[in-house]
Design a protein around this nucleic acid. Sequence first.
DNA 1: CAATCGTGGATAAATAATATCTATGATTCG
DNA 2: CGAATCATAGATATTATTTATCCACGATTG
Lengths: 167, 167
Amino acid sequence: MKLGDGVEQAIHCVAILAALPKDGLLPAAALAEFHGVSTSYLLKHLQTLSRAELVQSVPGPTGGYRLARAPEDITLLDIVLAVEGPEPAFRCKEIRQRGPNPLPGYMFKAPCQINRVMLRAEKAYREELRQVTIADLAAQVRTDDTEGLIEARGCAFFDAAMRHYAP
Amino acid sequence: MKLGDGVEQAIHCVAILAALPKDGLLPAAALAEFHGVSTSYLLKHLQTLSRAELVQSVPGPTGGYRLARAPEDITLLDIVLAVEGPEPAFRCKEIRQRGPNPLPGYMFKAPCQINRVMLRAEKAYREELRQVTIADLAAQVRTDDTEGLIEARGCAFFDAAMRHYAP
DNA sequence: CAATCGTGGATAAATAATATCTATGATTCG
DNA sequence: CGAATCATAGATATTATTTATCCACGATTG
């Protein structure tokens, strides 16, 4: 059981975008540099978030990304499902029916009980994530992430950020 | 986010072992054939379960596997953690600190809030699995899985089972 | 018109999961 | 005692998935 790195990157990106001033924009390259990941790779996730309508992209020389909705309306679950996909972690392969012996199919009308329990646990997992919004995280992100940026003059991220949201 | 196939195999194996008569033994080859997977591969997971002291192995021509504890004392979480490993699905990479800009380390004393939320969700997930024991599943397994076996004469699984737990 | 940026697909590299094989040691049965 | 059966454990191949990069295209701004 593992969660891809993309999830962490995506969450941090959304959190930082939430900390931008109103109508602020941040180019993908700036987000990538700040996180120390390749721009091309991060773009993949940003575009996924864009398709999921969690963020908006603005093309052009002064373009970039911003949130598509209010921070209160974006939950961690939204981000995780967008990046990781909606399929549950446990997929019942119905191995009960795979044996070479002629187990009659009518014995398996009922869905596998094991599958049922595993999915119930996953539902609890998602429910927890659904209750946390980006707005809930915003305060700390503003403190931990962006406050550092203010001091980081000369950093390309800072330059880009200033150029975009404080022209 | 994905759970390996081994989890499903392991759970079914444990469930079937729970349905055996007292002191019954089942060879790995029989379990593998019944599930339609290779013996060598299933052995890997059975040995993992053995190391986790969820099942016991008995060597020798009439050997095989049986539960190491009462079905009421084996939870789904035990099996999932044994096979999948105890590490959480979300591992905070602290990408806040990875950027090329000289963000001072003292800004990151507090553990990442995102990490905290993700782990809380995973805790809820595990709590659900902890509340389901093999005994809870045993009734249905006995009906769905082993009842079919009783009719499956000529199947090597049936032969092995009979040879072992009803000598 | 030119520079900048996002889009999207194709693709390569890296990593992990899956599956198999072989050798070894222990145990039981004839 | 010896042969057969089984679990153990490590090595290894195979496949799938993840991660990462690249390039051509279209849109937008100045």
